[in-house]
Simulated assay, not measured.
Amino acid sequence: MKQTLVQTTRETDIAIGATIKILRKQAGLSQERLAAAIGVTFQQVQKYEKGTNRVAVSTLIAICHALGAEPMAVIGPVLGKAPAGQSLAVLHLHNRLADAEERLEAIKAIASGKLPVVSGADIAAAADLNGYFVTQ
């Protein structure tokens, strides 16, 4: 079955966001530091990385400057071209590892009691904060 433009656009936004996340982690930057470098909130960076919000070309260039990467390093995987010295398989594995590490850090924070406890009413407001909260 042929995909619609909406489906392929959504997949492209997700793939670009995932690649930005990989490059950010490789650069050793937090979402907060990247956000400060490009003049947006860390929640906006989260939305870019999840593919929830589309990244404008001007923003992509700013992100690449902040990460010390070429724009083709972000766009290449979407076009089926990996950045120099990396295969697409390595990029995908790195992304899966980054997601697993993020989940592990959240679990550790929950286990150590370092995350705030919020009520059920606060959960909707916390959705943009990646859902890392413990409910009562």
Rank of each mutant, 00 (worst) to 15 (best):
G76H: 05
L67N: 04
G120K: 14
T52L: 13
T12E: 11
L60M: 15
L115N: 00
N53K: 14
A89S: 11
K108W: 01
Q7R: 14
E105C: 02
Q43V: 09
V74Y: 10
I14S: 08
K50D: 09
T8M: 12
Q86H: 05
G76F: 03
G120D: 15
A27C: 07
I63G: 07
D99R: 15
C64E: 09
P83V: 02
E102I: 00
I14H: 11
V6D: 15
L129I: 00
M72W: 09
V78N: 02
A111D: 11
Q43Y: 12
A98P: 04
N53Y: 15
A73H: 05
A109N: 08
P77C: 00
V118D: 01
I110W: 12
A124Y: 04
I107S: 06
V117H: 14
T59A: 13
R10A: 09
F42H: 13
K21A: 10
V40M: 07
G76I: 05
A89M: 10
H92S: 01
A125L: 14
D122Y: 09
G39V: 01
L93R: 14
L91F: 04
A84K: 15
A73M: 05
S58A: 12
A124H: 04
I38R: 13
D122E: 14
V45G: 06
T135M: 08
C64W: 06
L23N: 05
T19S: 04
V118E: 03
V6F: 13
I16N: 05
A37Q: 08
Q46P: 03
A84Y: 14
R103W: 03
N95C: 06
A37E: 08
C64D: 04
L97F: 09
F133G: 01
T4K: 12
A98D: 14
A62R: 14
L97D: 14
L91K: 01
Q43M: 08
R24P: 02
K108R: 12
A111F: 03
L5S: 11
A126M: 08
Q43D: 11
G76Q: 09
T19L: 00
M1F: 01
L34P: 03
T9C: 03
T9L: 12
G80M: 00
L88V: 03
N95E: 09
R33H: 08
V40Y: 04
C64H: 08
L104Y: 09
I14R: 15
V40F: 09
A35Y: 08
G39K: 12
I107W: 09
L67E: 04
L67Q: 06
A37I: 00
G28E: 10
Q43L: 07
A36T: 06
A98H: 13
V74Q: 05
L29Y: 04
S119A: 13
V74I: 10
